[in-house]
Simulated assay, not measured.
Amino acid sequence: MKGNNLLLGLAVVAVVVSIIAAGITYRSIDDLSTRFTALVSQGTINLTVETLAIVNFTNNAVNFSSGRVNSAASAASLITTGSGSVTNGNWTAQGGLIIENIGNVNVSLNLTGAKTAAQFIGGTSPAYEWNVSGPGACLNQNGASESGLNINTFHNVNTTVADSEKCRVFRFEAAVDEIRIDFNLTIPDDSSTGVLTDTITATVVANNPTAA
């Protein structure tokens, strides 16, 4: 009987010791967790990407060189579409100007010439026209493809800022970042002589394709 009581007493002691040990272990783990939590820290990485609205004439000159109207014709026609063509004259055929959006945002493209047909070419009924084309490069204010950019449709070169917008949204993505400017000139047989030249100015401002 005494032996049984002794065993029972030892069992009770063992249980009490186990409970105390478990409590100490839990507290130790809890304290350790608190210490680990206190050691956690955070850092940040930050940078700013600047907006760059800029275009560049990658083909910046159309030079028909020296020539004249054929003696049997009253005027010559010089057109830069495709690889260019000359009719009723002996000038050198040329292609058009190329403008590339080399920035990182869409822009509105404005183009102006400095001279009218009379000022640039002179003579009887001269023509000085241009066309802006660029499949996929030009969007309207709602982000859809711009209508009216037809390579076969020419308009008089404008010399005023009010009429200068040629592409509402000129895109910057590499595959669609170029626009071509072609010219259609009529040179009458009584035109001005010597070196005839005009300057085309491109002006841009950043624009969002969904902006009005």
Rank of each mutant, 00 (worst) to 15 (best):
R168G: 01
P126K: 03
A202S: 14
S164E: 05
T201E: 10
R171M: 07
G23R: 12
G67D: 03
V195Q: 15
N156S: 13
Y128F: 08
V15I: 13
D31M: 07
N60I: 03
L32N: 14
N140H: 01
N106M: 11
G23Y: 12
A174M: 12
I179P: 04
T51C: 06
E129S: 04
G3V: 09
A53K: 14
L6F: 14
A75Y: 05
A212L: 09
A76T: 00
V62I: 07
G123T: 06
V107N: 10
G82R: 01
G23F: 10
I121L: 04
V62S: 01
N184C: 00
D190R: 07
N142F: 11
N60Q: 07
T44P: 06
I45T: 09
T44W: 08
V157G: 08
P209M: 10
N46P: 04
G89S: 04
F183T: 02
A144L: 11
Y26K: 12
A53T: 11
D182Y: 00
A212K: 09
V40P: 02
D182M: 00
N104Y: 11
S147F: 00
V105T: 13
V169M: 04
D190N: 15
G136N: 08
S41I: 02
L78H: 02
V17N: 05
N150A: 01
V16N: 08
V69T: 03
A73G: 05
N152W: 00
V13N: 14
V176I: 12
T87D: 08
H155S: 13
D198M: 03
V12E: 14
S85M: 07
Q141T: 04
D198F: 02
A75V: 04
Y26T: 14
